[in-house]
Design a protein around this nucleic acid. Structure first.
Lengths: 348, 348
DNA sequence: ATCCCCTAGTGAAGCGCTTCACGCGACTGC
DNA sequence: GCAGTCGCGTGAAGCGCTTCACTAGGGGAT
């Protein structure tokens, strides 16, 4: 038989202890009303009794809670995994709670998940890379403060966002590759059937033109448990053309819009017997904590996870606590040159 | 001005719709009572109205919730990060919610975090690697179903656990290294001042003896944002001794009890100009999703994250839903040989 | 001295659900 | 035919908090 759970003190207990009404105690603890002296007495009594408000009761009574829902596209993606962990940590540190969900790579599940999350009556919502074009966001954002991370939600003007200055990031990458003499670069991006003409592609096209480079667009299936498919796909895209032609008849650099893809390219390169960076330069576009952990270190565009998390959580909580409005903030990325980029192989 | 949030239907609304008492509806929706016909009618009405129970009100009234708190030592640890993400996903898929917190590497914060989590009145608790010897677990486990992951909580007999059969994992590693001719191995483990004589160390000592190998115990600071400290520490431990002595006067293999440490060793090796696996073999002891992502692929002991998550969540929810007791389950690890281990360098 | 307003504090009504204790009719067994 | 059961359904009491509407008293302005 389990020991009985010791009963926690309630607001009423504190009220009895100080000889005031529960309402007074409630106001005092939140510092909303009451004389300084009363507030002090109430706080002291609460501390003495070990009282803590029951957030569930508070949420029911007020219709609000100190809980934020975090929804992301897939925690199998390394960047998102690290992002979600950091978001949860930051929320916790600020005295809030996170309930997290991920669509696990199935965008069609988003609706159901969102409903499931909202059933918990979160005070706000943080959404990490999902389909930013979906119509639903408009309805959601009009009811619940929402901050998107990575992309502004084009259909939801009232939502806040923390976006990356992709233009400068992409420009930095192309400059870097151009300097190293690369003239043909594979751009690896996710295969997203639903959103044609993505800004990222236009950006890439523009920068490539500026640097006078040709681009192979490689649309890649997402990282699943079985990475074989992704690797094979990338290997096919990076393999040299028919023998006898000018070597290398293939991109000499790969620019991956996700670090997972970059790791995929590294695997593909190994399977093709291409040495990095001698035969192939590889650039990522995130900065998972461990991009520099293994091998020669991945050259990558660092999105500054901590800055992003700070901006997103800070913005949301400020809006929640002081009613200020949400806005779109831009975080400037930084190119981190490590070991996977080098001079383009010279033609023999 | 925001559009008004459409009022959600309540239990009362459903009751009115079917002409029954709220109590009846409540029982019917949970399938606890009522004739089949009534249950069907109630369910139909609920579906028609788009009714969903308000989990907050339910939690307040019943003192229980479909929420599980997940507490871990540090989501900066790659394994734990991936574990937490998988736990949250699994819980969500089963219709439960996760609220997560991590001590961020500060065991002394655990108490406060636990209090913060428990204030949310979770139905159960999932704790990933933290100090399993702490006394507090006893009190916690006696009040709240708790499943530990990675270590059985020695002070809390009523807690469930999913543990790894470390003995067979460690044995496999030593066999593997012995077969490759290694005679001196560095064992890299976390620096945990408070828990002397850890079983892991005894295990290592026993297996080393069995395989007639000598061991350098390397206690390493945890992976912080600045990985320099860790790398330097490891480099010092792996550097050859004074020149002129029998070469290599250093461990020829490193066995890391955490994959983060393995990546640290890889960095240290690079800084020492040791080639892996020619000069130094490296074995990890986890299997973060991406141990095979970069470089030659890390030889590692695979803890089978999905099996672990399934066992932990399954056990906890079964206990919660059907009142069955908790138990200690053991997951057998698997040695995955990849590219970071090879024959010991021969003495010149 | 009068009026008004402002502040501190309070009573009571919920928030939306669960659950206890009970009424009622139908069924069983003798 | 009658007490004892059993299953269905219900009224009402909370769970612990917030918040509205209000009272009482203490200035300041007039």
């Amino acid at each position: 038989m389990l020991a009985r759970v010791p009963k926690r003190p309630t607001l009423q207990d504190v009220a009895d202890a100080v000889g005031l009404a529960p309402a007074t105690v409630s106001y005092a603890l939140r510092g909303e009303r009451g004389s300084d002296e009363t507030v002090a007495r109430v706080r002291a009594a609460a501390a003495r009794l070990g009282y803590e408000v029951n957030p569930i009761a508070a949420a029911l009574a007020s219709g609000r809670s100190r809980t934020v829902a975090v929804l992301c596209g897939s925690t199998r993606d390394l960047w998102q995994q690290s992002l979600v962990a950091a978001l949860a940590r930051e929320l916790m540190n600020r005295g809030w709670h996170a309930i997290v969900a991920d669509a696990d790579g199935h965008p069609e599940r988003e609706d159901a998940l969102l409903a499931q999350l909202r059933a918990q009556r979160p005070a706000g919502l943080l959404v990490a890379p999902l389909d930013p074009f979906a119509e639903q966001w408009e309805a959601v954002a009009s009811q619940l403060p929402l901050v998107a991370i990575g992309d502004r939600l084009s259909r939801a003007p009232s939502a806040g966002a923390v976006v990356f200055d992709n233009a400068s990031g992409v420009a930095a990458v192309f400059d870097h590759l151009a300097e190293l003499g690369h003239r043909r670069v594979a751009v690896v991006l996710p295969r997203r059937p639903s959103t044609p003409d993505r800004p990222a592609e236009r950006l890439v096209a523009r920068e490539a033109k500026r640097c006078r480079m040709s681009v192979d667009l490689v649309r890649t299936p997402p990282a699943t448990a079985d990475r074989g498919e992704m690797t094979a796909h990338l290997a096919a895209a990076l393999a040299p053309g028919p023998a006898g032609t000018d070597s290398p008849d293939r991109p000499t650099a790969a620019f991956c819009l996700t670090d997972s893809f970059a790791f995929g390219v590294l695997r593909a390169a190994r399977s093709l017997d291409l040495e990095v960076p001698r035969d192939l330069s590889v650039v990522g576009f995130e900065d998972v904590d461990f991009a520099d952990l293994a091998g020669p270190g991945l050259t990558t565009v660092d999105w500054g996870r901590d800055a992003v998390v700070g901006a997103a959580v800070g913005q949301l909580l400020t809006a929640l606590e002081s009613g200020r409005g949400l806005e779109v903030r831009t975080i400037a990325p930084r190119l981190v040159v490590r070991g996977t980029t080098g001079p383009a192989p010279t033609r023999r």
